[in-house]
Design a protein around this nucleic acid. Structure first.
Lengths: 335, 335
DNA sequence: CGAGACGGTCGAATCGATTTGAGGGACGAT
DNA sequence: ATCGTCCCTCAAATCGATTCGACCGTCTCG
């Protein structure tokens, strides 16, 4: 029945009386409105954006960075009547198993958060299915859109801030280097070449400022507890660094907690800086010195790219700016 | 082409040579595999479970309770090849606007988190579309499945724990009473009847223990900062309570921070208890006394109910147990 | 040697909404 | 009064995979 379609969609010209008649009949027959599947098949569009979260959801969701970007994305997609389908991707060390959803779920566009390495089986799978992809914080690649930030420049900026304060013994706590997600001080060999782009760039930022970290600690995930572990190791050894540059705010918070635990005053005894600019209400009265990235806007930007792609635009790369926010956790180097 | 279907699905009997021939032809034509929309239409199933989050995503995701349940749910649904579609539902005070996704997205079952009141337009909309619904922590209603916990009993238990420690002046910090989400001390009038089931039940638990709170503070959301605000008010007034029972761990953490801020020792000067049993690594060295609910299992239980519903089972109600975990934030009442 | 059984292949109908194009009715204008 | 136009209604084709049933070839057993 084509008239019924018009009656519900309200698209074509239709008499009010006819529409009413259709609606009455529908109610009588217990018809609950158009079946979305039919519409989607006809349109050739599912109205669904798959969001591939490159980590166990439990862990990814504990990071406000992920959730805030997701919020910005959902917010923008909502205005376009696009839904977000959550696709976990447990990319274990050697696991090549791809979530079946990635293989078979209907989606018009895919968004990959924490894309990691460029050779990811996730990206390969999406490419094979011919699904346009937007990457968040990944390596630039042909055919996919990428939204990133100037994290290298941001880290350089915060490192210079520490140099200006007179620090010379600077350590760093990093995000995972690769899917192995090790926990511990870095060997110079492994240090050479992180497989994960984000870790590599943020590490490079320190060198851009002309600094070679006195120690580098790799954590298995951006979580407070891992930051605390790192902090205990870095701050209790001999030749304690006077400043610690962390690749995320959660890690930095952990280091702050470890410092407090060890009886060190922040920032008198040790300066600690983070990255991301998330809310840390429980760190009060301290305010973390950090590089603020526009998280919600990042999500919204991804949404815009998705919109453009659906409108037929070419893949594109966008880089968002970051700003240094000086808080109370960094101060002059102890003399 | 029906043979092609068989070749890809591998379901029916098919000769290896034919399958190979089909695959070759597919590769040559640039055919990327079966279109999920066709399959879904034919099957009459979309393979999608809509998850309605009853709050702004940014806020909901900041609460580990939500994300952990979601993780448990996604984990179980993943084994069933079901995808999770995120549906925000900005239920403002008087807002009746329903997210268009709720009206038009394809989903086989809906899960409503933080369902709130039973008269929710969300539930009404789902019922009208005839979509089976699983409610998390909502009011029992005919036709919908509900997964809940014995929070009333849990609160009673933790209140008795405080009574045993000799406390008599007990205050409470609550979740929102309704969509107004007020922030402040409760008037006895409003206190009478919280519209939101979860708040009502947890409040009732205190009374079950034979206690009438000396003060009740309503917060606009389960977040650390709101707990801190509540703590500052409750703990700085005259006739300071010696114990505070909070309806969530995040709220309790905020109260702990407020107490520290005011120079009060926990638990010597004031005992503080929470609810949920989430990880609070940054509260160290304190361990929150709290009522632990099995969050991941709760999500998995919802997943099971979804599975059963898709298999044709009737709506069902499940209640999960809670356990009291005594930490370092409660102690004998000051004399 | 013939008939039945079986494995494999293919055609056609189906799921449900959309959309195009044709047809019919009513009203206004000449 | 008749023609033209406009507005509405409706039939039919389409999107793509699935599935039932028909058909054909071969193999086996009597």
């Amino acid at each position: 029945m084509s008239t019924a379609s018009l009656a519900f969609s309200g698209a074509g010209p239709i008499a009010a009386t006819t529409r009413q008649r259709v609606h009455d009949a529908a109610a009588e027959l217990g018809y609950a409105g158009p079946n979305p599947l039919g519409r989607q098949l006809r349109r050739g569009r599912s109205g669904i954006v798959g969001v591939v979260v490159g980590d166990a959801l439990s862990r990814a969701f504990r990071d406000p960075v992920t959730t805030q970007v997701l919020d910005g994305l959902v917010g923008h997609l909502g205005t376009l009547d696009l839904g977000v389908l959550l696709i976990p991707s447990a990319s274990g060390p050697t696991t090549t198993t791809i979530d079946p959803l990635l293989e078979s779920a209907a989606m018009d566009v895919a968004v990959v958060m924490w894309g990691g390495a460029g050779d990811s089986p996730v990206l390969a799978g999406l490419a094979r299915r011919g699904i346009p992809t937007v990457l968040i914080e990944g390596r630039l690649a042909p055919g996919v859109s990428v939204v990133g930030i100037d994290d290298r420049g941001g880290i350089e900026q915060v490192t210079r801030h520490l140099l200006d304060l007179g620090h010379t013994r600077i350590a760093s706590v990093t995000l995972p280097f690769d899917h192995e997600r090790r926990d511990g001080l870095m060997t110079s060999q492994r240090l050479a070449d992180p497989a994960w782009e984000i870790t590599r760039r943020r590490l490079a930022g320190i060198h851009d400022a002309g600094v070679t970290p006195v120690a580098v600690y790799e954590t298995p995930a951006s979580l407070v507890e891992h930051g605390a572990t790192a902090g205990r190791v870095l701050l209790s050894g001999p030749d304690r660094p006077t400043a610690v540059v962390c690749q995320s705010d959660l890690l930095a918070s952990g280091v702050v907690l470890a410092a407090r635990e060890l009886g060190l005053r922040v920032p008198q005894d040790v300066s600690i800086a983070g990255f991301d600019g998330i809310d840390l209400p429980w760190l009060a009265p301290d305010v973390l010195t950090t590089v603020v990235q526009p998280l919600t806007e990042k999500g919204a930007t991804v949404g815009h790219l998705v919109e453009d792609i659906l409108a037929g635009a070419e893949p594109e790369h966008r880089e968002l700016p970051v700003t240094l926010r000086v808080g109370t956790t960094t101060g002059p180097a102890p003399s």
